[in-house]
Amino acid sequence: MRADARRNRERIVASALDLFAARGCAVGMDDIARDAGLGVGTLYRHFPDRRALVEEIAVSALARFRDRVAEVRERDVPRWDVLALAVEHCAGEPFALIKSLAGDGPAPPERRALQAEVDALLEELAADAQDEGSVRRDIGPAEVIEIVSMAVCRPGARAGDPVTRVVLDGLRARP
């Protein structure tokens, strides 16, 4: 892809994220193109429809999250700390937005595969944290991740907000 085309694509995605976050799901493609400083034709050359744009955002966010969790997981630190860092990073991604915008149909194979990879990585992390004794053992690793997901994949989620703190506190093993 040419450098100018790549920059245009990046501007479109950044504008879409900003507008969706500020105004919700009802933002039109014309608004996104205008905010990006591009013509609507340029937007549609990169993304033939709204779903393609949302999928681009979703795949990019999932890949960033997967890479960050894998990187942090390699460190020689307590697994609880790795889980907390994963939650912090996840809260900074547009997962609530993606969930609301992309939930109107089946996920494409690329996103399904990436989501399965992320889920497996997080379940392994939860199991490791349970093995070290930092996460409760009365629920399974998949349920730990489902609970964390409910906390951070909601509008307005932040790593240190009260809901996320309470969820993490509830998952923490007690001596």
Rank of each mutant, 00 (worst) to 15 (best):
F95R: 12
A84I: 02
R73F: 03
E110R: 14
S134C: 05
Q115D: 15
V87F: 03
Q115M: 12
D67K: 00
E124W: 00
A142S: 11
L114P: 09
F65S: 01
P108S: 10
G92H: 08
A126P: 05
P141C: 06
A107E: 15
D138F: 03
D128S: 09
A96N: 10
V72P: 01
V87W: 03
E110A: 15
G92W: 09
F95S: 09
G133H: 10
A126R: 04
V87L: 08
R111Y: 14
A142I: 01
E132C: 09
S134Q: 01
D81R: 14
A116I: 00
E74A: 08
P109N: 15
P106C: 05
R112N: 07
L62P: 04
D128K: 00
E74G: 12
E93T: 13
Q130V: 06
E132G: 12
L101N: 10
A113K: 15
V77I: 08
R64T: 01
A127S: 04
E132D: 15
L114K: 08
P141R: 06
E74D: 08
P106E: 15
Q115W: 12
A61S: 10
C90V: 02
A127K: 01
L122N: 07
R64N: 06
A120R: 08
D131Y: 10
L114H: 05
A129W: 00
R112H: 07
